[in-house]
Nucleic acid binder design. Structure first.
Lengths: 293, 293
DNA sequence: CATAATCTGTGTAATTTTGCACATGTACTT
DNA sequence: AAGTACATGTGCAAAATTACACAGATTATG
């Protein structure tokens, strides 16, 4: 059953009773209406209307079509209302992603957003792989590292995330407390895998020529924090993870260690109030010091 | 909500996930599909799909549309099935009309047809006014008198209906039994109104110069029979009405009294098996002597 | 009875829609 | 690493659709 527009034309003819009236409602010439009806009847192999001087009277098939098309018209109208209105309301699904290490600081904020908008259903996906906004996998993504440059993405700078160089109590018990003097020789680092080799604190290590001391590598910031906690070495850990794991700070956050963090949304969804609500809440939480500290 | 065809296009894109796939299903060029989607999104003011190199992923609005359009597609398919199949099966409504006087002889035949086709719902409308086939008021009409010549009607000769010149017992009691000799002077005729003045037995009266003896006129053959029965005069009555009312035959049916009877169907409906079934049954009943006797 | 008002129906021209060719980009495979 | 397959997107020409104008027919009206 193709050509739905012809069904719509027939629907208006059946409702109005005349070709001319239907043409006016549809905003087309009455000749167009006649041809639509003729084509539709030819395709169905049945007369939908009986033609007479006063107009078109629907046959049995015509009244059947009228009822079905009436229901369709209603459903499409409701659909259009929902779609046009959905840009205004904060409701429905919202998928937000980040790397796993952000979960501890992001989750409370998302919980608050969800509490403020009961109609909103938040799905927070964490993982090291890149959730792709252009595939509809997420609405909002929190990315860290160098600025994303995907053409279809709207990128906003969220915060510069500091990291502490930390050691776990178990590590200190075995290797002693690292100091500026003995770090160059006697200590083991937890570092990043090749995939994250451009992290700013990575270049700090390589600038000092300490690459050989990196004995544990991971592609995930979360795993790095876990490794430090388990005593695999000293490494760079976010402030909240340092507190959570009760780590000992060796070197406080340095300006050139910070990794910029970005809020990324897809351009098609960026203007929707649903996305905007979440973006604003996240930025406010950062400004108030509720996140990434 | 106009342009239903664009909704159908979007439906196929959402279902297939790619523009190219949808274009193949729809039998149009993929550029056409892209333009349909663009137009629909522009009209709705919302993105229905997120575009990426692997195809189109429906947004929230897109999945909403997908569900509605899926239901529409189903309904239209069922509708087409019903309409296309309806030409084959003998089912649904069938409206047949005639003048009231035929009711007694037509009804049993219609009852038999209805019994043979349980899915058929017969409506038998009687009345003197012309039920107009082209307005969809009836599927089959039994007409008497001169041959109808409406261009959109299919006319078949059904039977030549004889009439008896009769008198009621009450009339004979008051005026005596009419005979060939005294009819010219002493008897009163029940005749036809101007609207039926072309009835063949009418010209028999006028040929004999007996118009002045017509003292009761009616536009309905049924009423004429009733008038004769009630003793208003002598008049022309169909065989079954003569028997029903137990009238006395004055003059037996004459060859030039017969009024031809026609089976009329609208050309648009004539080929449907539903109409054909009824037409065949009526003609068979006449041939077997079950009607108009 | 004639006139006005509608409505359907068709040939023709203008407009819109569609199809084609080609460019471009991404994912997968060898 | 290069090639293949498949996807979207756009300028331009062809085709299909539409609007226009007018004819024909019926109903309503004074």
């Amino acid at each position: 059953m193709d050509n739905w527009d012809e069904i719509r034309t027939a629907f208006q003819v059946a409702r109005n009773g005349t070709v001319s009236g239907a043409a006016e409602v549809l905003g087309v010439h009455h000749a167009t209406v006649i041809r639509h009806i003729d084509a539709l009847e030819a395709q169905l192999g049945t007369k939908l209307f009986q033609r007479h001087a006063r107009g078109y009277t629907p046959t049995e098939a015509g009244t059947d079509l009228l009822q079905v098309a009436q229901a369709t018209d209603d459903q499409f109208s409701q659909l259009a209302g929902r779609i046009k209105g959905q840009g205004q309301g904060v409701a429905g699904d919202l998928v937000i992603t980040s790397i796993a290490v952000f979960a501890g600081t992001v989750s409370p904020i998302l919980a608050q957003i969800q509490a403020d908008h009961p109609a909103l259903k938040i799905r927070y996906l964490t993982g090291e792989r890149l959730f792709r906004l252009e595939y509809g996998e997420a609405h909002v993504a929190i990315r860290s590292g160098r600025a994303p440059d995907q053409p279809d993405n709207v990128v906003q700078h969220l915060v510069d995330m500091p990291v502490h160089l930390c050691a776990a109590p178990s590590y200190i018990a075995r290797h002693g407390l690292p100091s500026a003097e003995n770090m160059a020789d006697h200590h083991i680092f937890v570092g990043t895998d090749e995939s994250m080799s451009r992290a700013p604190f990575n270049s700090w290590i390589s600038d000092l020529g300490w690459e050989k001391q990196v004995r544990f590598q991971s592609d995930s910031t979360m795993t790095m924090a876990e490794a430090v906690y388990s005593g695999a070495g000293i490494g760079f850990v976010s402030p909240w993870k340092m507190r959570e794991f009760d780590l000992t700070e060796i070197v406080p956050p340095q300006p050139d260690w910070v990794t910029p963090t970005w809020l990324v949304t897809h351009v098609d969804l960026h203007r929707t109030s649903k996305v905007q609500t979440v973006v604003k809440a996240l930025k406010a939480a950062v400004a108030n010091g509720h996140m990434f500290r």
